[in-house]
Design a protein around this nucleic acid. Structure first.
Length: 434
DNA sequence: GCGATCAGCT
DNA sequence: CACAGCTGATCGC
């Protein structure tokens, strides 16, 4: 599609229509109360968050897009001046409240932009609607380019459904009946987790005042409270709690902290077999479908008791590798591009899933991003498994050490080290491209 | 002084 | 180490 027509999650001037997939700050960077370039299309839920996120924002710019139905928009080609008819549809992305993917069609072809998404969804009706909408749209008109949330587009990323994670967290809380509980959350997202915990334990959940206003906007009227006397479970801003604050809380009242996001997914110490956890709540259907060995593997990977009063539990609002694969098989795009380029473990989706599109990348072309540094490039080259390559890599590394007087920034070195680690792990898993 | 941007931290 | 998002420093107007 030619530039100057639309922007998705980008807010610089120069487009005739703007699309917002969801209200997370990394997707609204550049958007502000005074922004007024052109109409902005988003879901109803996302639109409802504008007054509190951007006080003073001109709400007349907002165009609410309903889910699973086509809309049209007349644009004009900046180069030729001729009219361009754009058809678009929003599909539930199950990432956070209000999050959507956008499908665009026109004479230019068909693009599907996922934004951040998790294809797995606890709400069976919502999952089915998203799936049938997508299948029907694709049958009519194949997708030329899939712009994909490739955050975890690597087989090393495997984690349980959000429902299983919610049961794991509820189990931790039940296993500590006389403790206060704090759960770290952000300004939007993980509401379903808190609702699960509330239902399973039949208690309210404390949230901070601004978060309560958000909850009310999202339609949760009774579950949440700002009254600490009503519950022992509090959802707190994730940035405000750490081992130190937890230790501080424990001086006043025995308190367990839960981080629903999971720290190390790549390499972690073996699960310490915390006898306090019963596992008795693990009746989720997605979990029961697994074999006993698979269940054990999931649990060992999913709960990390890394401090005597702090747990982390894998809880992701992005699709894991397996879900990304299922999604691509369903969409069958002619080609695709990853939309997440900031990750230090960025992998072009064509590397693992290119065969589905009839395109695949040889390992040498597994570039990270357009501005890939020499260091990162070298790290990725290791993935080509050739002993000759490894010799070259080793020689270059030696050369680099000789003339490198710490000219590279520390974070770039760190990123490169991670790359090497990822490449080595990929080897261990015997991942063979193409 | 204010907003935008970035480094740093979690 | 992820992601998401806060804090605080710096830059430009």
């Amino acid at each position: 599609m030619e530039s100057g027509l639309i922007s998705v999650d980008r807010w610089k001037s120069g487009s005739q229509a703007y699309f917002l997939t969801h209200m997370h700050s990394d997707h609204t960077r550049g958007l502000s109360a005074v922004w007024s370039h052109a109409p902005l299309f988003c879901s109803r839920t996302t639109a409802s968050l504008f007054p509190s996120r951007f006080p003073g924002f001109d709400l007349s710019l907002l165009r609410v897009v309903s889910l699973s139905s086509w809309q049209s928009l007349s644009l004009r080609s900046p180069s030729t001046g001729s009219p361009v008819l754009l058809h678009f549809m929003a599909i539930d992305a199950h990432h956070c409240p209000g999050s959507v993917m956008f499908m665009f069609r026109g004479d230019f072809g068909c693009f599907l932009y996922t934004g951040d998404f998790r294809w797995e969804c606890d709400d069976a009706a919502a999952a089915e609607e998203a799936r049938t909408t997508l299948v029907a749209a694709i049958n009519d008109f194949p997708v030329d380019i899939l712009y994909l949330d490739n955050t975890y587009c690597n087989p090393i990323y495997s984690f349980p459904s959000r429902q299983v994670a919610a049961y794991l967290i509820a189990d931790i809380i039940i296993s500590h009946p006389s403790h206060d509980i704090v759960i770290g959350v952000d300004s939007l997202g993980k509401e379903d987790l808190l609702v699960h915990v509330s239902r399973i334990l039949n208690i309210k959940i404390w949230v901070w005042p601004e978060r309560l206003r958000t909850m009310h906007l999202l339609g949760f009227q009774d579950i949440f409270t700002t009254d600490t006397s009503l519950t022992r479970v509090r959802a707190v801003p994730r940035h405000s709690f750490s081992i130190q604050t937890l230790e501080g809380l424990n001086l006043m009242c025995p308190t367990i902290g839960i981080m629903p996001s999971g720290l190390p997914w790549l390499k972690r110490p073996p699960f310490n077999g915390d006898g306090n956890l019963s596992g008795s709540l693990l009746t989720a259907t997605t979990f029961k479908k697994k074999t006993a060995a698979q269940q054990r593997e999931l649990l060992q990977g999913a709960v990390h008791h890394f401090h005597h009063n702090m747990y982390s539990v894998n809880y992701s609002d992005h699709s894991c590798y397996e879900e990304i694969g299922d999604f691509i098989k369903l969409v069958k795009p002619k080609s695709m591009k990853g939309i997440v380029v900031s990750s230090s473990c960025y992998v072009d989706p064509l590397y693992y899933f290119g065969r589905i599109c009839g395109v695949s990348l040889p390992p040498e072309l597994l570039l990270l991003r357009p501005d890939t540094t020499r260091e990162q490039f070298r790290a990725v080259r290791i993935k080509s498994y050739s002993t000759k390559d490894e010799t070259i890599v080793a020689k270059k590394e030696k050369l680099r050490k000789e003339d490198d007087h710490s000219s590279l920034k520390t974070n770039k070195k760190k990123r490169a080290r991670i790359q090497v680690k990822c490449a080595k792990i990929a080897e261990l898993f015997e991942i063979v491209p193409g």
